[in-house]
Design a protein around this nucleic acid. Structure first.
Length: 461
RNA sequence: GGCGCGAUGGCAGAGUGGUCAUGCAGCGGACUGCAACUCCGUGUACGCCGGUUCGAUUCCGACUCGCGCCUCCA
């Protein structure tokens, strides 16, 4: 039983072999905290949470670090716009991020390091790079010398000459090579700054990840993850720094994993198109499990399209799962090891969630067709193991179907009263009245289902 | 322009050198007082052109189209 992962470094699916199976290390680039995160960030987070869960099922210990970049020019600019203190501003969005993650059902990473708490480590890393001839100070800045690293461009598969030729940005005078990137830059008095050998300043964009990795996870990590948009320049630069800042034979990261982007109804999400979905908004509008499931149904390396149809399909599966949870109440289930399921075996193939969910669908259909309670119980046990593993079907079935009523909706008591009246009407063979009640409920968004044990109802949403 | 990725049935989306993906929607049926739920049945799918092969949606090459990155971005 082993995991296969697509490694961006080689462009191929490879067998995952950790350096130390007793402590697997995973680092994922977290948010720069200057706003609430959007649904695409949520997708990325859910995908890496799934990877974390898979690794946890395979290895006794997994150290998963996901950072907060809480010093950045975008934060400075946004805080200034709002007239809020920068650290207060960043703190607000870090807290919001934690809330969003919890609501989405993501497990907490082992470590959540913050850039501002690692300024000393960042300076140490920069000093090491200078000492080793890979970085130089100029004009209060410190820059990484791209020419000092032969493999620069290896990860994103591009060469520096082409990039310089196609560059559209002006090259700062203090750069020796136009591709050199900033490790440290000077801060004016109104900006966050820390004392350093190069004067008061703040770190550049990429260095914080490298410093935090070296500090918490070691010189060579097993898996480094992030969105494909980070491949260049962020990860390329990290790879350069991380490789050059110390002597390590294993390289900076053994496997680079990149998730694809998300579109909304076929269009790129953007504020100007008015199709921007803030994760916390949609988590308030829809059941969080629905959002989580929908985000996981696409393969992480494929572009995914967020649409009404996707939500409809995901809801359909969740309804089936909760129907099993509700109707299979009397069945005696047993604990099943997720590693013994076909579902898990499919995830081992580079997190093939579409294939895994096809398997889940088959299990639900087999459950409904099963002819014996033993068979149903076995299937329900397997379905529960899967649902628990991916973090859905965690609600009470009644709560899932009946939802929480807002003020304008019909109360549960009122619904029950109408249903009682309907039962009476049916007994009196007054089907016209019975149908009238059903139509009335339907108009209020209540669907009903007659069973031998009585009438069940659920809310649309 | 450079680098990379992709093109599968109405839609979404796996996969395979020669029998089924799967889901949603549609249609027909069973169940039901009628419904809903559930079940059963149902659809000449693999961008275009060459090549390899006994045989290609699957391998190779060209072409067309789409997407991502190259600047902040998951």
């Amino acid at each position: 039983m082993s995991l296969k992962l697509h490694n961006s470094l080689t462009g191929q699916k490879e067998h995952f072999e950790p350096q130390n199976p007793d402590n697997v290390t995973l680092y994922v680039c977290g948010p720069t905290v200057y706003n609430y995160i959007h649904i695409g960030n949520g997708r990325s987070a859910a995908n890496y949470d799934l990877l974390f869960r898979v690794l946890n099922a395979l290895y006794p210990k997994v150290t998963y670090a996901r950072n907060f970049t809480d010093v950045d020019d975008k934060i400075n600019a946004a805080a200034k716009d709002e007239g809020v203190d920068i650290s207060v501003f960043a703190e607000k969005y870090m807290q919001a991020y934690d809330e969003d993650m919890a609501k989405l059902g993501n497990l907490e990473p082992t470590i959540v390091p913050r850039a501002t708490e690692h300024i000393g480590d960042i300076i140490t890393t920069i000093e090491a790079l200078i000492e080793r001839g890979h970085a130089y100070a100029a004009d209060g800045h410190v820059l990484f010398a791209v020419d000092s690293f032969d493999d620069y461009g290896k990860l994103s598969k591009r060469n520096t000459e082409d990039m310089i030729a196609g560059a559209r940005v002006e090259v700062a005078s203090y750069k020796k090579n136009p591709m050199d990137f900033v490790l440290w830059k000077p801060s004016s008095d109104d900006l966050p700054g820390w004392d350093s050998p190069w004067g008061r300043g703040r770190p550049g964009w990429h260095i914080e990840c490298t410093a935090m990795i070296q500090k918490h996870l070691g010189e060579t990590i097993d898996i480094h993850g992030g969105g494909t948009d980070l491949l260049f320049p962020h990860h390329e630069n990290e790879l350069a720094q991380g490789t050059c800042c110390s002597d390590h034979s294993g390289g900076y990261a053994k496997y680079w994993v990149h998730n694809a982007m998300l579109d909304i109804e076929g269009e790129k999400m953007s504020k100007s198109l008015g199709n921007f979905i803030v994760l916390r908004d949609i988590l308030n509008e829809q059941p969080p499990e629905l959002i989580r499931l929908a985000l996981l149904t696409a393969h992480y390396r494929s572009n995914m399209n967020w649409s009404e149809q996707l939500l409809h399909q995901s809801r359909s599966l969740l309804d089936r799962l909760y129907t099993i949870k509700r109707d299979g109440d009397a069945l005696i289930t047993t604990d099943i090891d997720i590693r013994d399921t076909e579902f898990f075996a499919m995830l081992l193939d580079d997190l093939n969630t579409p294939k895994a969910f096809a398997n889940l669908h088959e299990l639900t259909t087999r459950f409904f067709k099963a002819e014996s309670d033993d068979e149903r119980a076995a299937l329900k046990s397997e379905i529960h193991a899967i649902a628990d593993f991916i973090g859905v079907m965690q609600m009470d079935a009644q709560a899932w179907f009946q939802g929480t009523s807002d003020d304008s909706a019909l109360s549960a008591d009122a619904i029950e009263a109408l249903l009682e009246e309907r039962v009476a009407a049916k007994e009196a063979k007054d089907f016209a009245r019975a149908d009238e009640i059903r139509d009335q409920l339907a108009a209020e968004g209540i669907q009903i289902k007659d069973t031998r044990e009585g009438t069940l109802w659920s809310r649309d949403s």
